[in-house]
């Protein structure tokens, strides 16, 4: 490779281009990373010192106090529990449902295939909107329940189509031989299709998990009256916006403490606490989601 490159003349303008490009990419990296490093540094800095300003990417007056303090908030721990639960359960159920329906849609001999596929695709163009969706959740008695985090978003048409285009590319012979051995359609899906779909399922699982972990609006809209159903992101919203909610007059509640003492450092500590789980996981799945993304989009 190197030999072939050097065989071609590289002139000065090419070299200038490369240097400029490298410099540009360095700027991109700094712009992407600096805010996170800054937040991290502030979260490890004593709150009194933070007020003076001027913290860059290294804490000036190092402390673990901020993290100790936020771990004492009851609401944050309840939020953590609910966020983990909705992420795990929502991802598991989502991947299961999406892949199951995607498999049936990939079966050319399935008589209802056209109907189901059209029925699902139409929903990509229309949505009822905010108010009818809210009324539906209310009528189904899902308000102030944990299930409002799981049920409304359980089936994703977009994910179904991504998985289906992956299954369509698998060799059909495996399915046929299993069929000859007398396996029924569910067994074929479970034993043959699912294990082969690992890369695309990892992608979809990542999408769903990130969506679940990051969502706060459903908590705000449906469960803001139930402190036991709060989520991490919603707690962070309350802390960042410093809203003095009238329903929660508890002195131990996170937002009150954030108001009374050490706003900036505590806010940033909670931000890091909420962000780290996602940031730790995604680089490991990068190979998969890049495949999955391009599968869904370039093909259709």
């Amino acid at each position: 490779m190197a030999k072939r490159r050097s065989a071609l003349p590289t002139n000065t303008s090419d070299r200038i281009f490369d240097i400029c490009n490298m410099a540009f990419m360095m700027i991109v990296v700094v712009v992407m990373l600096y805010p996170f490093l800054n937040v991290l540094a502030i979260s490890f800095n004593t709150s009194l010192d933070t007020v003076k300003g001027g913290i860059t990417i290294w804490p000036r007056d190092f402390t673990l106090e901020n993290y100790k303090k936020i771990l004492e908030y009851d609401t944050l721990l309840v939020g953590l529990k609910n966020s983990v639960l909705r992420t795990v359960l929502g991802t598991f159920l989502g991947v299961l449902c999406d892949s199951m329906i995607a498999y049936t849609l990939s079966r050319k001999d399935y008589k209802a295939r056209k109907f189901v596929s059209t029925f699902l695709a139409l929903t990509l163009f229309f949505s009822g909107g905010l108010v009818p969706g809210y009324m539906l959740v209310r009528d189904l008695q899902l308000m102030n329940t944990f299930w409002v985090y799981i049920l409304p978003g359980m089936v994703s048409v977009f994910n179904i189509f991504i998985i289906r285009s992956f299954i369509d590319n698998l060799p059909i012979s495996l399915q046929e031989s299993a069929k000859l051995d007398g396996a029924n359609d569910f067994v074929i899906y479970w034993r043959i299709i699912l294990p082969l779909c690992k890369p695309v399922l990892a992608t979809v699982a990542l999408f769903i998990a990130v969506g679940q972990w990051n969502s706060w609006f459903d908590t705000y809209l449906y469960n803001s009256m139930s402190p036991s159903l709060t989520t991490l992101q919603y707690e962070l919203v309350k802390i960042l916006q410093n809203t003095n909610s009238t329903t929660n007059a508890n002195a131990q509640s996170a937002e009150n403490i954030a108001n009374m003492v050490t706003p900036e450092s505590i806010k940033m500590a909670v931000t890091i606490f909420v962000t780290v789980p996602v940031l730790v996981i995604y680089p490991f799945l990068q190979k998969y989601f890049m495949q999955g993304m391009t599968l869904g989009a370039v093909k259709d």
Binding site: C97, M100, I101, Y103, T104, L105, Y110, A112, V116, F119, L120, T123, F126, S127, G128, G129, V131, P132, G133, M135, L136, L140, L151, P152, M154, V155, V157, D185, F186, Y189
Partner: peptide
């Protein structure tokens, strides 16, 4: 069995809100 429960699900969560119009 593997697809129709979800057709019902999509009907409830995506089509009924349109009726809400």
């Amino acid at each position: 069995l593997m697809s129709f429960p979800f057709v019902i699900w999509v009907f409830v969560f995506s089509y009924i809100p349109i009726w809400g119009w």
